[in-house]
Design a protein around this nucleic acid. Structure first.
Length: 583
DNA sequence: TGTAGTAGGAGCGCTGACTC
DNA sequence: GAGTCAGCGCTCCTACTACA
């Protein structure tokens, strides 16, 4: 159907109003004109000669109106619009909001707000009208943007200003940081106002990662586009845009299609981000947050075996398992951290983590070989998924870690407990390093870690094989003795030495144990002390320990003038690999 | 590769001005 | 006085970067 010129002007008036206070530039006007004609099946590049043959013999009515979109038509439209009683012309050189052309959609030919296919403005027109914008009256702007007349109770002034800027960016939308710069409003107030606009239904607010920051993409509700048009919008922004909502929907769909368990690599391929490091890192964060709310867990799954080669090496793969039907809370967690569950994790939240995550989640190595090698996994009968940590840890910050560990190990009885089970029972995977440190202190020299009268509280470390890899195994002193008596284990090197006597340099009491002072510490022989009394300055201690030989300040005066800079540098940077402390 | 530091986005809550 | 709006201090979270 042909487009009547009056109808075209009415449509363009709407576009001018939609541009709000920013106004419509010549480039966008041209694109809007083209879009209107495209919508009425008149292509801008169609030649008159193409339709001449049809005029006489075609059953279709002859086409009327403008057949070709060129500079003259756009300029004519501009002039016609500018004479309209409701339209005003303003100069961007005087009052352009934000003062940056880079964020001004008024002449942004890539903006899809008014066009199906952009119309490229000629340099002549750009020079003539580039600094001018068409704007219209307040009532028409309100009608176009908000869908109703001016109503500052319903839509406060500051919110309307934001809305008009968002409207000016049309279907392309605008990122919240850009909106802050353009509006000049306080950056802390803008998110709240855009939230209100979303609740009132004026705009859509989509959580995305774009411009290398996590932010929101804002669009008028009427410009909410379907998934097929998203790629075009992304192109218009000329940046990587990660849409959490779209990811989440696709994520859930893929999980359900695969019986709620799926290899991580397959998920990456399914989401179309295989080989994209940046997107993969972001996906890891989303998965971590989803695991934190208990919607899914990371598992290591054994790949289906080779039926033709039963001796083929079993391969494991990183996988994800959906634990329940995702809800709105899970969608929020996928998008962002639920407030209070980040660094301020509650004990309950920690206990519900149920995943292998000790802070390495941002790296691709988060599912690494270590996860596969740890013992204590549970193999599922059906799809051979090996689940890690299916028991909630019991540690809370008000429990003394050493006491808790002793209790867990003691409850394991004569059989003892492996390190993986100990993690699972006590602190979970999150505080692995802290627990490792405590265990090393307790067991590296277990016969010295407790004074003799508390030896029954010592923890003896042994080693065992789990999944083909050596792991530590822990028993209490009494339980280890029982295991020895039952011929299940034998006193190994450390145990034999402990039973043979204390380490060299320690004073031995009548019972063979170290002599301890009133505080429970071993008494240090006087021959090991500086001057034999233990009363010395730091410098004297350093001299006695021969630290001056490696001290760069001391050696500075001895530096030979003939040393090369490289040799001097080596001297200054020389450090001992370790200090030998006399026993 | 892991960690610490930094910058920016966003949310919470308080306060003051304004209106009814 | 109550409700609303706007501004702002403080804080947390996230992504990036430099460095060991």
């Amino acid at each position: 159907m042909a487009l009547d010129f009056e109808e075209l002007v009415q449509q363009l008036l709407y576009d001018v109003a939609l541009a709000g206070k920013i106004g419509l530039g010549i480039a966008v006007l041209g694109s809007a004109v083209k879009a209107q004609y495209d919508a009425h099946s008149i292509t801008s590049g169609e030649s008159v000669a193409d339709v001449e043959e049809d005029i006489l013999f075609s059953s279709a009515p002859p086409q009327t109106g403008i057949q070709k979109l060129d500079d003259d038509l756009v300029e004519l439209t501009w002039q016609w619009l500018s004479t309209h009683k409701e339209v005003k012309i303003r100069s961007v050189l005087i009052d352009q909001p934000g003062g940056s052309s880079s964020v001004d959609p008024g002449n942004d030919t890539t903006s899809p707000s008014a066009n199906a296919g952009a119309w490229s403005v000629s340099p002549t027109l750009l020079q003539k009208y580039g600094d001018l914008r068409l704007t219209t009256g307040e009532t028409r702007i309100w009608q176009a943007i908000a869908g109703h007349g001016p109503d500052y109770k319903r839509l406060p002034l500051m919110e309307f200003e934001l809305l008009s800027i968002i409207a000016a960016y049309g279907a392309k939308g605008i990122f919240q940081p850009q909106l802050v710069r353009l509006s000049g409003q306080d950056k802390r107030s803008v998110p709240m106002r855009t939230d209100r606009l979303t609740k009132k239904g004026y705009i859509t607010k989509e959580s995305v990662i774009a411009l290398k920051v996590k932010t929101s993409l804002l669009k008028l509700t009427r410009f909410a586009v379907d998934a097929s048009a998203l790629a075009e919008v992304d192109k218009a922004h000329k940046t990587i845009i990660i849409r959490y909502d779209a990811w989440f929907s696709e994520f859930v769909r893929l999980m359900k299609e695969n019986n709620n368990i799926m290899a991580f690599e397959d998920m990456r391929i399914g989401l179309g981000i295989n080989g994209k490091k940046y997107e993969t890192k972001t996906l890891h964060r989303c998965i971590r947050r989803l695991a934190q709310v208990g919607c899914l867990r990371k598992v290591t799954a054994r790949e289906a075996g080779n039926e033709y080669d039963p001796h083929a090496k079993v391969r494991h793969t990183r996988a994800l398992q959906l634990l329940r039907e995702p809800n709105d809370l899970d969608r929020q967690a996928f998008t962002k951290s639920v407030r209070g569950q980040g660094s301020r994790l509650t004990t309950g939240a920690i206990a519900s983590l149920g995943e292998e995550d000790d802070g390495r989640d941002d790296a691709d190595s988060e599912f690494d070989a270590e996860d596969l090698e740890d013992g204590g996994t549970v193999e599922e009968a059906e799809d051979v998924a090996v689940q890690l940590y299916d028991t909630k840890p019991i540690w809370t910050p008000d429990l003394h870690l050493a006491n808790l560990l002793y209790r867990c190990i003691e409850e394991a009885g004569m059989a003892g407990i492996g390190s993986t089970d100990l993690y699972r029972l006590s602190v979970g995977p999150l505080w692995k390093r802290a627990m490792d440190d405590t265990l090393i202190r307790l067991t590296a020299a277990w016969h010295l870690s407790q004074p003799s009268h508390l030896r029954h509280l010592a923890i003896v470390r042994d080693s065992s094989q789990s999944s083909g890899a050596p792991t530590y195994h822990y028993r209490t002193y009494d339980n280890f003795q029982k295991a020895v008596d039952a011929s299940h284990v034998a006193w190994d090197y450390s145990g034999a030495r402990a039973r043979a006597g204390p380490m060299e340099g320690h004073v031995v009491g009548p019972t063979g144990d170290s002599v301890i002072d009133a505080w429970g510490f071993s008494v240090v022989p006087s021959k090991l002390l500086v001057h034999g009394t233990g009363d010395a300055t730091l410098a004297e201690c350093a001299t006695a320990a021969h630290l001056s030989e490696v001290n760069p300040i001391v050696s500075k005066s001895e530096r030979h003038t003939s040393d090369t800079p490289e040799r001097q540098k080596r001297k200054y940077t020389k450090r001992p690999t370790s200090f030998e402390v006399p026993q």
